[in-house]
Simulated scan of single mutants.
Amino acid sequence: MLRTAILATTALAAAGPAFAGEVNVYSYRQPELMQPLIDGFEEATGHTANVVYIDKGITERLVAEGERSPADLIFTVDVSRLSEAKEAGVLQPVESDVLTANIPDAMRDDDNMWFGLTTRARIIYASKDRVGEGEVTTYEDLADPKWAGRICTRSGTHVYTIGLVSAVLEHNGPEATQTWLEGVKANLAKAPDGNDRAQVKSIWAGECDISLGNTYYMGAMLDDPEQEAWANSVRIEFPTFADGAGTHVNVSGVGMVKGAANEAEALAFMEYLSSAEAQQIYANVVNEYPVKPGTPPSDLVAGWGEFTPDETDLTAIAGNRAEALKLVETVDFDG
């Protein structure tokens, strides 16, 4: 169920504008990731950001609340969740020269309903002991029988997996994608279960040799004394698509709620999040890649290696969500 818990309210900055206001946010992002951004926004603008942290169901909540919703913005991870909100009619288009300048076309909705703020790559965690460097090549290669009994992954119906399958669909079409899913399933060391970190733990425990995961989990594991050994047992490999496209990336992003009562303050927050200052905070706190051109990742993230991101429009990939889920269920990927 919803975890409505934390309303982050702080006093207006003394140097802020005379008519400072408030902005109300529903967020999937954790408090420890949001707070540095809230602090920076409030200091820069004098506005106050009130944030409700929610485990799941933001779109459903907004639909249920309708015009009574207090929310002005939603923060979420994965383009699928952003597209879901758009399709449910709970977002409104935003026109902003600042957002257009700071956020590349491929990282924002074609109708300006949502805007990507950071990217994360969907990569391979590979055992340092049992997988040679360069042995992992393409996403399509994961269906090769050489990986039989060597792959771990989370549920095929999870939003992160659906995002990757949607990208495979965009590059290879439905028939090839179904064959690929069948091949990957045949190579699994065990039934899909747990989150991305659990898969790395399985590699550390010798249960499999490679797993799919998001890049930022490496930083999260290195920060946890219990999980540091898991992280140190693997290295990050950046697979690409066989057609020559780069590594699949997804976004965390923001959208303005339809009928937002505090529209000016909401826009100010969105524009702040795309600024060099906020993008650098993102880079250092959440171990993700900034979307604003010219903003470098953190030293830790840069140390994982360089890669070429797939530049396929995320709106097009998100449009494959329903078909991706159908294929996952057709092959009984989690069975």
Rank of each mutant, 00 (worst) to 15 (best):
L2G: 11
T4N: 11
A5K: 13
I6C: 07
A11V: 12
L12R: 09
G16K: 10
P17K: 07
A18K: 15
E22R: 07
Y28S: 14
P31L: 10
M34G: 00
Q35C: 04
P36Y: 05
G40I: 07
F41Y: 00
E42L: 02
E43N: 10
E43L: 12
G46F: 00
H47F: 05
H47P: 05
A49R: 00
A49Y: 00
N50H: 08
V51E: 02
K56Q: 07
E60G: 13
R61S: 09
P70K: 09
I74C: 01
V79L: 06
S83L: 10
S83N: 09
A88K: 10
G89V: 07
L91T: 03
V94M: 11
D109V: 02
N112G: 12
M113P: 02
T119M: 05
T119F: 01
I124T: 10
Y125M: 15
S127D: 10
K128G: 08
D129T: 12
D129Y: 03
T138L: 02
D141R: 01
P145C: 07
K146I: 06
A148E: 15
G149R: 09
R150A: 02
S155M: 10
T157K: 05
T157A: 12
T157C: 05
G163M: 06
G163V: 06
V168L: 14
L169S: 01
L169C: 03
E170P: 00
E170D: 09
N172H: 13
N172C: 08
G173D: 07
G173Y: 05
A176F: 12
T177A: 05
T179Q: 15
W180A: 04
W180N: 03
E182P: 01
G183M: 14
A186P: 12
N187E: 09
L188I: 12
A191G: 11
N195M: 09
Q199F: 03
K201E: 11
C208K: 10
D209Q: 02
S211Y: 01
S211C: 09
Y217G: 05
A220L: 15
D224L: 06
D224H: 08
P225N: 08
E226M: 09
A229M: 12
A231W: 00
N232D: 05
S233N: 11
R235L: 11
I236A: 09
E237L: 02
T240V: 15
D243N: 15
H248T: 04
N250C: 05
M256K: 14
A261T: 02
N262K: 00
E263G: 02
E265K: 00
S274P: 13
Q280H: 04
A283K: 03
A283I: 09
N284L: 11
N284T: 13
V285I: 14
V285T: 15
V286C: 11
E288I: 06
Y289H: 14
Y289L: 15
P290L: 10
V291G: 04
K292Y: 04
T295Q: 13
S298N: 13
D299E: 15
W304F: 15
E306N: 14
T308Y: 04
P309H: 02
P309F: 03
A322G: 02
A322L: 10
A324P: 00
K326N: 10
K326P: 06
G335A: 13
G335K: 01
